[in-house]
C-alpha cells in the first residue's frame, strides 16, 4: 500500500476549489490547493505532485506559466491537465504545446474526472519521478 496520490488543484475561484477538494478528498486523494501561479509553483516545489489540475486564468498570469516554471525547476507534476472555461481549438493547442496531458472543459462531469485522474494515478506514484514523458 503506497501513500495516497497527491493532487494539486489550481483555480482562482474558492467556490470551485472547495467543490473539487471535497470531491478528491472523499475519493481518497491527498489534496493541495493553489489560487495563483505563484501558489501553485510553491506547492509543487515543496511537495511532489502526481496530478495537477490547472485553471488557465489566474490572477497573476496564465496558468500554463506555472507548468513552465515547475519544469524549469525540475518539479513538474507527473501529469498536468488544463481546466478551461470553454472549448476552443486555439486554447487546446496551447495547452498541449505546454505539455498538458489533457484539456478538460469545466465543469467536467465528476464521474469522468475521477475516472481520468484514477487512470493517471494507477501506475507507480511519484516520489519525484525521473520519467521524462
Amino acid at each position: 500500500m503506497g501513500a495516497r496520490p497527491h493532487i494539486l488543484l489550481v483555480d482562482d475561484s474558492a467556490l470551485v476549489l472547495d467543490a473539487l477538494r471535497l470531491l478528491f478528498q472523499e475519493s481518497g486523494y491527498d489534496v493541495s490547493v493553489a489560487r495563483s501561479v505563484t501558489e501553485a509553483v510553491n506547492a509543487a516545489v515543496s511537495r511532489s505532485v502526481d496530478v495537477m489540475l490547472l485553471d488557465l486564468t489566474l490572477p497573476d498570469g496564465d496558468g500554463l506559466e506555472a507548468l513552465v516554471r515547475l519544469r524549469a525547476q525540475g518539479a513538474e507534476p507527473r501529469v498536468t491537465a488544463a481546466l478551461t472555461g470553454r472549448e476552443a481549438s486555439e486554447v487546446e493547442a496551447r495547452c498541449f504545446g505546454a505539455g498538458c496531458r489533457a484539456v478538460l472543459v469545466k465543469p467536467v462531469p465528476i464521474a469522468q474526472l475521477i475516472a481520468q485522474v484514477r487512470d493517471w494515478t494507477s501506475g507507480p506514484l511519484s516520489g519525484r519521478s525521473p520519467e521524462k514523458h
Partner: peptide, 14 residues
C-alpha cells in the same frame, strides 16, 4: 456566471 455554476454543478454531482 460560469464559475459559480461550475461549483454548483460539481457539488450537486457529488
Amino acid at each position: 456566471l460560469r464559475t459559480p455554476l461550475t461549483a454548483i454543478i460539481t457539488h450537486a454531482e457529488i
